[in-house]
Design a protein around this nucleic acid. Structure first.
Lengths: 130, 130
DNA sequence: CCTTGACCTTCAAGTCACTGGAAGCCCATA
DNA sequence: TATGGGCTTCCAGTGACTTGAAGGTCAAGG
């Protein structure tokens, strides 16, 4: 499988696969005689693993940690769970922040007429000196 | 007011103020004889405006737009509201994504024993080929 | 008078996670 | 044989700063 086919199979774009190789997230791909990168079953599974965990918002660093745990047959499920719980708390904090922002903005937009006059409580709020 | 005092007064760090100047979000500060940047009332209000809008998650580009509208006495409140509504929809979409992630992760962690054995449904899920 | 420490200045580079583009080789098909 | 696509590398750009280095300025204490 060339890099394009691997990208197709995993959802990770060719540029991104090369990038992951360059930062050491995945080992250097084996090369065909013409210098093309070559991917087989395990490489594909690894890329899918990366794609799923990235899609769940884990940082690339954390994905590296998860890959290491995946390969470590002596891992404890507690260590995996700890990483996941940590990430959940990050996600929940971010949701909280965004929800606060959302509420503020909705309040402001409800108070703004949204017509062709310049008076605007949204700008007023941004400009008030508290 | 030197840059440090302006930072203190607005919550925008000195480095960030210089950065905003460098990208043209704020005009170049006037300088004292020794070359130090000098800030007065209006500059401070502008920096506070920026801080509030950035804190609400507007991009620096959007903040530039809001500043322009703030200074434009012929603006329409509709144009401000449109920017805000757009941002709300971005925020809500992001919240949706994060909530989906959150639900998935919570489900996985609940199914993981989190003990000293290696079996882990979290990793199993990340590794499954669907 | 000198030193110390806290300011301030600039410019370059690092962060995160890619993404885009340029220049050039490789390969299958019409 | 020409064309078009895929592959290679490397460099630069994104967003929004942050860090660090090297050096100028200023007020206070010994």
């Amino acid at each position: 499988m060339n890099i394009g086919a691997a990208a197709e199979a995993t959802g990770v774009p060719p540029k991104t696969i090369r990038y992951y190789e360059s930062i050491g997230l995945i080992p250097p791909a084996t090369r065909a005689e013409n210098g093309y990168r070559h991917y087989t079953g395990f490489d594909i599974e690894t890329l899918k693993f990366i794609q799923r965990t990235r899609h769940l918002g884990f940082s690339v660093k954390d994905v590296g940690g998860l890959l290491a745990l995946w390969h470590d047959k002596d891992r404890t499920s507690a260590s995996v769970k700890a990483l996941a719980l940590n990430h959940i708390s990050d996600v929940e904090q971010r949701i909280q922040e965004l929800d606060t922002i959302r509420k503020t903005l909705i309040d402001l937009t409800e108070r703004c007429h949204g017509d062709d006059r310049p008076e605007c409580p949204i700008l007023d709020e941004f400009a008030t000196s508290d």
